[in-house]
Write a protein that binds this DNA or RNA. Structure first.
Length: 280
DNA sequence: AAAGACACCTGGGAGC
DNA sequence: TGCTCCCAGGTGTCTT
């Protein structure tokens, strides 16, 4: 389940093997991912040199002079760096073969991922209207305070909203809310500025830490199994329903918010008293 | 405009 | 052992 740290780790892992190399061919075995892989990729990318690998939100951008291949890993996707001649397995849907013998292979059992194309002067619709990157200075408590005005959604769904801030998925949303001692169900216009400060700090810290740890498994992207490293990190609440809280030892509780399981500590993460005059 | 529901897909685990 | 059922996850889109 690739969250932002894994996508970032993937970008860093693949770039040294393919940057500056010309694409020899494209292989599409299963065009039907979340959306159909556009024919334009097969027709126009071979012969082009990969300029660099970038990330925006959870989208991986392979930059070429005539446009970019956009790859999203969905919930089960992964990219691996292989050498020419390795036989594809059942869910290996898409390959980019480079002139140096490197093959970048997309595996995605559930096919929730995507491979798309954007021309140089036609930015893809999916990349418009995205909020700030969580690990940049443009993302601050003020980002949240401004976006929260007049909204009543739960703070958990709010932090997972791509228009507010990108890259915070279900796992890290739960973890960050625990770290900031905020009840996930708190209506977002009832969250104090102090809590928003703590939440922003928690999101930045947890994501940065996960990327750092993911970085230790970079070698896995070369001929390895491509398994993510970030799950090795200790999760405080996610997936721990019924287990005891690491802070207060009381049992963790699970609720559903926006059709997503949400685990939290009812003792450490309390709902605030209702404030009438919210958001100044 | 905001919020909720639903869709996409497969593998894995639980329950029978 | 083998079957069925349910769930996980990200995020675009449709409905209320």
């Amino acid at each position: 389940m690739p969250e932002l740290p894994e996508v970032e780790t993937t970008c860093r892992g693949i770039e040294p093997h393919i940057k500056g190399i010309v694409v020899r061919s494209i292989t599409v075995r299963q065009p039907q991912l979340r959306w159909l892989i556009p024919d334009q990729i097969s027709s126009s990318v071979p012969g082009q040199r990969l300029l660099e690998v970038q990330r925006r939100a959870k989208y991986i951008l392979l930059k070429f002079s005539r446009g970019d291949i956009i790859i999203h890993l969905g919930m089960s996707g992964s990219l691996r760096v292989l050498s020419t001649g390795q036989l594809p397995a059942k869910h290996d849907h898409f390959d980019i073969s480079f002139c140096n013998g490197v093959v970048l292979r997309l595996t995605d059992p559930r096919r929730f991922g995507a491979v798309l194309w954007q021309g140089v002067d036609q930015p893809h619709k999916l990349l418009q209207n995205l909020g700030p990157e969580p690990l940049t200075e443009t993302f601050t408590a003020k980002t949240f305070i401004t976006a929260a005005k007049g909204r009543k959604v739960s703070v958990k769904q709010f932090v997972m909203d791509n228009k507010v801030v990108v890259g915070v998925g279900n796992i890290y949303a739960a973890e960050a809310l625990f770290a900031a001692a905020i009840h996930p169900q708190t209506p977002v216009n009832q969250v104090s500025a102090d809590k928003f400060n703590k939440l922003v700090a928690a999101i930045k810290f947890i994501l940065a830490q996960a990327i750092e740890r993911g970085g230790t498994t970079l070698k896995d992207f070369v001929g390895g199994d491509g398994k993510p490293g970030y799950f090795a990190q200790e999760l405080q609440v996610y997936g721990r329903k019924g287990e005891s809280c690491n802070a207060c030892l009381k049992p963790l509780k699970e609720i559903r918010l926006g059709q997503r399981s949400t685990v939290y500590c009812p003792n450490c993460q309390r709902l605030p008293r209702i404030r009438k005059n919210s958001g100044k």
